[in-house]
Amino acid sequence: MDRTVERCREVRLRAYPDGMIQPRDLTIAEAALPKAGPNDLVVRNRWFRVSISTRLMANPDAQAVEGIPFPVLKPGDALADGAIGEVVACPAGSGFEVGGFVSHPLGWRDYAVVDAGSCIALGQGPIEPAAYLGHGWTAYAALTRGIRVRPGDTVFVSSGAGAIGSMAGQIARRLGAARVIGSTSTQDKADWMTTDLGYDAVILRNRGSIADQLKAAAPDGVDVFVDMVGGAQLTAAAGAAREGARFVLLGALTAELNVAGASIVAPVELDSFQLILKDVTLRGYSADRDYAEAFPDWIAWQREAGLHFACSKVVGLENAPRALHDACEGRLKGLVMVEV
């Protein structure tokens, strides 16, 4: 296997964050590219995803969590996340070809040596990187496997301007939802959600009672809740649930973005009696763990769905640390992606 690349740049955790992760907590280091084994590809990364769950994994007490596809980090470790790159070198008979695009899990660096079993061939291109790196497939799996959207449903999506929420509202509509409501943090995002993503109404978490806003936006109640936040938004959705409502819980940003430090503990108060009386389904869900086979279905489905791939693109590996900070601060919209 011919390899001409000897070194790479990668983003590493420099120090554990004190509260919210800062660009100074990360550093860009140059290192020798690992020696490729007989089953490895050498890939030049073109794009990689920036996920706020990276902050959770960068805490000193972080633990590997089933369903969260990110490694636990300690100072000196290179970050990792989904990436798309071009094959520089590959073993003969591997099924891959030099110049072809592949998706793989070793982003946050300009070159990567990746086991062929962790790569998915994407062809020679051109491709839409957000379709592969984005969390549209998570939303798609959640709304077709985790629970089901029915024609005429009223759907509420928390964090509707985020990586999952920006896709979930659109997907719910195309699956038959009659009314789609989202929540977000700023009026600018709310306007973008209604104009570009097709939301019918948007709740602002800093504009008073979530429960009162949801009642005004969905006076007849909610059939489906796609939750990335937890906390008061989950409580409000439970209060607005119609009979037979289906809730799918995909994240808990109240814990992951807690200003005192990221955590996997996200307490919430629910009226369990009402959940019983209304026959509400409440399901915790991870597409990576539960329905990884949904990914090819998603790629085929989205080609015909005419979706808007919401994306905040940052150019340059050196700007990736700032992108993670801004994503965790809620300053960016949709998928956050770095073009290397």
Rank of each mutant, 00 (worst) to 15 (best):
D297A: 03
R9Y: 12
M1N: 03
G182H: 04
G251E: 11
A36L: 05
L41R: 03
I84D: 05
E30R: 12
C311R: 13
A232W: 00
V87R: 04
G251K: 10
T144V: 02
E97M: 06
D212N: 11
A305I: 00
A31H: 06
V50P: 10
T194I: 03
R283G: 02
P267N: 09
F156H: 10
N59Q: 14
G19M: 09
G123C: 09
E329R: 15
G67A: 03
L133V: 06
A240D: 01
A80Y: 02
G67D: 06
L332D: 08
L133H: 00
R322T: 14
D25Y: 09
N206G: 07
Y140G: 01
A327E: 04
I164R: 02
P17E: 11
W192D: 13
Q302V: 08
A32V: 09
G162K: 04
D326L: 07
V222L: 05
G19I: 08
D110P: 10
E293R: 02
P69N: 13
D61Y: 06
L41V: 03
F96G: 05
A305F: 01
I52K: 05
I299P: 00
L277M: 14
A216Y: 07
Q124H: 08
A216E: 15
I68L: 15
M1Q: 10
G100Y: 00
F156A: 04
R12D: 02
T281R: 07
G208C: 08
R150G: 05
P75I: 10
A217R: 13
I21N: 02
I84W: 06
P296R: 00
I28Y: 10
E66M: 10
I84F: 06
L56Q: 08
M167H: 06
A139Y: 05
Y140M: 04
A327N: 15
R148Q: 13
L214K: 13
L317P: 13
V315W: 00
G85W: 07
L324P: 11
P71D: 12
Q302L: 00
G125Y: 03
A260I: 04
D2Y: 02
P23K: 10
G182P: 04
I171V: 14
S263D: 07
R205N: 13
F273Y: 12
S51T: 14
D288V: 01
K313H: 02
L253S: 15
W301I: 01
S209G: 12
G99H: 09
K278L: 06
G146E: 01
D271M: 08
V248Y: 14
S53N: 14
E269G: 10
A201Y: 05
E30H: 09
V157N: 11
V42D: 12
Q63R: 15
A245M: 07
S158P: 02
R322N: 12
V149R: 09
A131V: 15
K313A: 12
S53L: 14
M1P: 13
D2N: 13
P71I: 12
P91H: 11
S159A: 15
V336W: 10
I84L: 09
V314K: 09
E10P: 05
M1G: 13
D81H: 11
V226S: 08
I299D: 01
L335G: 03
S118I: 03
A83H: 02
F101C: 02
M228V: 09
V280H: 00
S118N: 10
M20N: 09
A29T: 14
I120L: 01
G230Q: 12
V11Y: 04
G82R: 06
